[in-house]
Structures are given as structure tokens and as C-alpha cells.
Design a protein around this nucleic acid. Structure first.
Lengths: 225, 225
DNA sequence: TCATTTTCTTAAGCTAATCTTAAGCAGGCA
DNA sequence: TGCCTGCTTAAGATTAGCTTAAGAAAATGA
């Protein structure tokens, strides 16, 4: 799940970014209004949710919100605002936001709202599995035949993506965009390295790998395996 | 509310029974160990709280306590004891008691503790443990292999949080929010310092730490350890 | 109240895990 | 055969977390 966070206070932005990344989201940060608007519009289909600060230097969060809504009627938008009069929040919701949070807010609360909005979108699932392998995003644990397996962050994120799309082919470029960065060099071989790592840690000796290579396209985890 | 009191000194037993009955409890008295054990086990679901004398003729209060705990993990148990060295009380808590009172005690105090335990009785767990470590929120005590360990407030709070979530990864951001009530400061390394302190005080030399670090995410206390 | 002790927080240097890059290799496919 | 894609490995860069120490804050006790 990919999130665009538009927030100019770097301390707050960093805190939120870190927290959400620990929860398994990929987070891009825009530190002013113009940048936020650009990132949002250029990659509008990439993001699953938008977190917009109300008061941004340059273009305000409200304007970004309106622009996003022109392109996409349903993607969840949450406002983060220091303002707290009812009128203002109403104004925000008027502009097309789904929810708003008054600063300072507990991270727990932000997370809860995000999950509510994503659930209504995609059905919040926390466990993904194949016959032998199970991945639990809530608890951040991967097991093979019931035994826990140590994965690094990137390995975990990659495996989660593959399992979320079990049965489908995951294209290399999409994987890069989702797990690494929208702007990441597409000609990299990082993926190969991490696929290799997953295979080493999770395959059963002497059997076919649970990750199939689809030459020229990407990778697929089969429904059974 | 029904109470089982195991106490061999009839004067004390009568005094407590009368006092509690005036407060509206129903009190059954066992005057020796064997009788206490029988009454407890035969009607374990009947009693809302157990008051056990430490030194009973026949079977000791500790043994009764252990037997009760085998059947029921949560029912409150209070020890009444003439012994007063720290080791002895620790030994009692180790056996699964929730609280203890040194004789002679004021009746008021007994009543207060009973009320506290009954209030928190509704679902609230007060003892969290691993194989070697036990933490009791009621009396604010931590033991390792039965020996008390001195923890500071913050250390205790952190350990409690980790043990409450035993088996799950506790994310750094959440820990900071819960224990430090900090919302927007990501660059703190207090957690590291306190994890370090807990490890120093509670790990067994030469073995893996009971707190596992999950890089980029947080920490986990395993189910076994 | 002030002094002393304990506890908490911050910061800095260090270590080790993780990520990234790159290069050589293997095998599929025209 | 020869090219292309992906596999594998290893080395270097980067970053997260460990450890220590010192100063700040809070609790304790005269």
C-alpha cells in the first residue's frame, strides 16, 4: 500500500513516515504544496491514500484535495490540520476529503482511520499464505510450515506484495514502484537479489521454487505451492 | 460474591468471616490444608476470590494456590502470611497469587485489596510471563526464575508492554506513543537505551536475548524464551 | 529548603545488519 | 551460435540499532 504524505514540518513528516513504514506501507513525502500537487497528479493511480496537511507553503492542502478529486472520485483523502474550528473541517470535507485529524494526534488514531478507509476500499486482510508459507502483516511474522523465518524489511515487503497478488504475474516495474520508489531506476537488479534471498530462505530443497519466474515480465507465486 | 477463606487459627478466621459477611460477601472457611484444597477444587467455579493462609496444617497455602491456578488462570488469590521476608512473598506470587497481606493486618486493608482485585477481575489480566520472567502489575513486581529484579518505572512499563504483546512484534512508533506519550519525535533513541537496560537486567549470560530486535520495525518477546 | 541519589534523556561513536551495485555466469530462445 | 534475461555472489555503502557516558530532571531524605 502506497501513501502520499504532504506535510511541510519535517519532524512530523518523518515521524508519520517512519510509523507507517513500520506498518508496512510505502510512504512518499512532499514538503510543500506545489510538490505535493505534482506528485499526486503525476502518479495518481499509484497511491492508495493521501494524507494532506491543511496549511502547506505554496498550494494549500485543500487545493490539492480538489485536484485529486477531479481525477479520482474515490481514493481516500485524510486531512491533517492544526485548525480546529468546525467550519474549517467542514470546509475540508466539502472539498472532498474523507476524514480529518486535528494535530496533535496520536499515531494510533491516524493508523486506525487509515485502516478504516482502506478496509472499505479493499477488505482489510492481514494474513496471506500459500500451502507452506504464511505471512501476517499485523504481527509482522512469516512462517514456513509453522516455523518462523527471519526476513528483512525489504524481503518482507516483497513477499507481501507477491502473496497479495498470488496467482497473478507481478511485473518487475510494478514491484519496483511499489516496494522501492516511484522514481527508482527501473534497470536495477535489486529485485533479482531479493527474489534470490526469498528463495534461499523459503524454498524447500529439491523442489521447484515457490516463486516462478516469468521471463521478460516478472514473477508469480502460484495458488498451490 | 463468594469467598473461600483457608485459615487454621479460628479466632482470625472468625474475625475475617464476620467482617466480610458484614460487607455482603458469603464466606466459607476451611480450617486446614486438605479441607481447603478439596473445597477449592470441588467448587472452583463457585468462588470469586480465595484467601489463603500461608502456613496451614497439612497442605500449605502455596500448594492450594498452585492447584487453583491449574484450573483457573485468572481468579484472584490473596495470601495471608505471618512470614515477612521478601523471598517468601515473592515465592507466593510466583505460585500464582495476585496479592499478599502480612499479618497482622488491618481489616480495612484486606477489604481494600479484595475490592481492587474484584474490580480488575473482569477480564483484566495482571500477570504476564515468559519461561523465566514473570511480571505482576497488581503488586508491581518482576521476577526472574523466582528472584525479584529491580526495575525502574519506565523499564517496568516497557517490559509490561512487550509481555502484553508476547509473540507479536511491537513497533517502535507504537512503543514511543504508549510508554513515552511522544507523538512527533522520531529521532529519539530512548527505546534503545531502555531495551538495553532490560536486557542487562533480565537476560541470561551467554544465551540469546529474550527480546528480539526486528530491524526497521521494532522488538518482540518470543512465546517461549 | 537544599543536598544526595536515582532515574530519565540526549548525544556520539561504534558495530553489524541490510541494501545496493556491479560483474561474471547460466540457460532459454531466436 | 549469440544475445538477452535473469541468477548468483561478493564487495562497498548505508543505515538501524547498540553501548556508553554525561547532563537534566525527578524523587528522596535530611
Amino acid at each position: 500500500m502506497r501513501i502520499l504524505l504532504a506535510e511541510d514540518e519535517t519532524a512530523i513528516a518523518g515521524f508519520i513516515k517512519d510509523g507507517l513504514e513500520e506498518e508496512g506501507f510505502s510512504v512518499d513525502v512532499a514538503s510543500n504544496g506545489r510538490q505535493g500537487l505534482e506528485m499526486a497528479i503525476d502518479n495518481i493511480t499509484e497511491y492508495d491514500i493521501f494524507l494532506l496537511d491543511w496549511m502547506l507553503p505554496g498550494i494549500s492542502g485543500i487545493e490539492i484535495c480538489r485536484s485529486i478529486r477531479k481525477e479520482n472520485k474515490t481514493v481516500p483523502i485524510i486531512f491533517l490540520t492544526a485548525k480546529d474550528t468546525v467550519d474549517d473541517t467542514v470546509f475540508g470535507l466539502e472539498a472532498g476529503a474523507n476524514d480529518y485529524l486535528k494535530k496533535p494526534f496520536a499515531f494510533e488514531e491516524l493508523l486506525a482511520r487509515i485502516k478504516v478507509l482502506l478496509r472499505s476500499k479493499a477488505g482489510e486482510q492481514t494474513i496471506f499464505e500459500t500451502e507452506q508459507i504464511q505471512l501476517n502483516t499485523e504481527v509482522h511474522l512469516v512462517t514456513k510450515n509453522g516455523k518462523p523465518v527471519d526476513l528483512t524489511q525489504k524481503e518482507f515487503a516483497l513477499l507481501e506484495y507477491l502473496l497479495r497478488n498470488k496467482g497473478k504475474v507481478c511485473r518487475r516495474t510494478r514491484i519496483i514502484e511499489k516496494i522501492w520508489d516511484v522514481h527508482f531506476d527501473k534497470d536495477t537488479s535489486v529485485i533479482d537479489v531479493f527474489i534470490n534471498a526469498l528463495r534461499k530462505k523459503l524454498d524447500t530443497q529439491g523442489t521447484e521454487s515457490f516463486i516462478q519466474t516469468v521471463r521478460g515480465v516478472g514473477y508469480r507465486v502460484n495458488d498451490h505451492s
